[in-house]
């Protein structure tokens, strides 16, 4: 929620620049954290993936649209 509320403020030039400096510091930590969490995520996804991927993908044919 804090993230959302922060974004309510306008991004006019000066404010946006200040924010950019602040977020730079956290960048490397954030990237590492994202990598670490991937294993848990894959386990979760395993439980909802459709069975028989090959057949599902093979039969997924759409007509062109628009």
């Amino acid at each position: 929620m804090a993230e959302q509320e922060r974004k309510q403020t306008t991004g006019r030039e000066s404010e946006a620049e200040t924010e950019a400096v602040e977020t730079d510091v956290a960048v490397s930590d954030q990237a590492e954290e994202i990598t670490e969490r991937i294993d848990d995520l894959l386990d979760e996804i395993d439980s909802v993936l459709e069975e028989n991927a090959e057949e599902f993908v093979k039969n997924y044919v759409q007509k062109g649209g628009e």
Binding site: K7, Q8, T9, T10, G11, R12, E15, A16, E19, A20, T23, D24, V27, Q30, A31, I34, T35
Partner: peptide
């Protein structure tokens, strides 16, 4: 539209640093 600019800058900055962000 101020929020648009803020997000735009944030996304470009992160794309430049490491898209995985």
């Amino acid at each position: 539209y101020g929020r648009v600019l803020y997000l735009w800058e944030e996304v470009l900055t992160d794309l430049e640093t490491d898209p995985m962000l």
